[in-house]
Design a protein around this nucleic acid. Sequence first.
RNA 1: GGAGGGUUAGCCUAAUUGGUAAGGCGGCGGAUUUGAAAUCCGCUGGGCUCUGCCCUUGGGGGUUCGAGUCCCUCACCCUCCGCCA
Length: 424
Amino acid sequence: MLDIAYLRSKREELIEALRKRGYDVSIVDKLVELDERRRKLVKEGDDLRKLRNEKSEEVARIKKSGGDASELIAELKKVSRRIKEVEDEQKKVEAEFRELWLQIPNIPHESVPLGKDETENVVVRYEGEKPEFSFEPKPHWDIGEALGIIDFKTAGKMSGSRFFILKGYGALLERALINFFLDINTHKHGYFEVMPPVLVKEEAAYASGHLPKFREEMYYIDEDGLFLVPTAEMALANLHRDQILDESALPLNYVAYTPCFRREAGSYGKDVRGMIRVHQFNKVELFKYTKPENSYKELENMLENVGHILKLLKLPYRVVQLCTGDLGFAASVTYDFEVWAPGLGRWLEVSSVSNTEDFQARRANVRFRRKSTGKLEFVHTLNGSGLATPRVFIAILENYQQEDGSVVIPEVLRPYMGIDVIKA
RNA sequence: GGAGGGUUAGCCUAAUUGGUAAGGCGGCGGAUUUGAAAUCCGCUGGGCUCUGCCCUUGGGGGUUCGAGUCCCUCACCCUCCGCCA
């Protein structure tokens, strides 16, 4: 959610931002009109309430001194009826305004390249060397099924498409990745570990910015009104909802492992094979609460943290800055990390690192009191995957595959696995 | 699932039969002090067209001229019963 000032005093900036993102800008006129109507109603209501407050006290005085206030009460009855009318109208206008306002995305940061969709994203840098093979590299589903560590067929039988079962060393590799990600982020990168619920209430989904826009993307438990989290970000963005944080405690750095659940409603027929795009996967998520003036420094820091993990795994990757047309709803700026998958012959997104500035904090109402001014300010929040497992799993199988079908384990994972290579 | 008790500002706590939220702690600023403590004074929820006004007692709704207080409803917390890995 944006500062309302974007509607009142910085309207040109708002319109410009919507244009860059490819949004319909006519919504702005509607919002301005609703805002003006709302302000008029507030004024009228305030005046009426003032009248009621004054006259009611008069009633109290008259009654105390034993007088007859029935005439005044009759008059106030009318005032109260009118107040009710004005308030009802105000509520209607406010609800209408809120519904539209919640659909306004964040303002892209000035560094974000202009573009209409993902084809215009900009590769910032490449890291690591793509491996050379003396044979035709296989896709992970062939490698995994031959080794008996991935089972798509049985998963389909019990849960449907876009699910998978990891077995034996496959399950162990997955567990090793989760632990490695958590260990490095807590021990080396300075994040505080949290294990949150994976079912959250509707208001939590609004606070994180996932509702109203991404309702279709989430699993919903109707009976209890709970959503399965599509990312731990949703839980971490609610850790301090409606709180005033200590300025000296910032930045707060959190890391959480959770399974993530996505309906993939809009992606029929896309990446149906393998575990590139699945309904349930594991992810270790990074999240920061910072002071506004430090959020871009902290963004750099988070980008370094994510890159460091991929370097330790010795996987070739590239960093891509999303253009205005591809930028997520709540983000001011986003960098994706894409890892090379030689069996598939393509880059796979394994992390998305964003600064939402105060957009999410405003929705979740997370503030701090600045000592130098004594004023309350919204914090800035940042989120990034560090990392999501299935695609890293894919990249390991495909980059570390050997001609005989075995897969060498990256050195940093060997202490977790107890073996150097997965053989058939 | 059932019964009862709770929710007041950052925290803690008051408020006769319904009459328009009183204090304390902590924090910040100031006075005093060589400095600190102690003491004293002020500020310490949000909004607006800001000498002032409006809103705010967990959320929403109702009764009333007027609701922290009465009624309905929802959420959360505590105690007990039931169920349960």
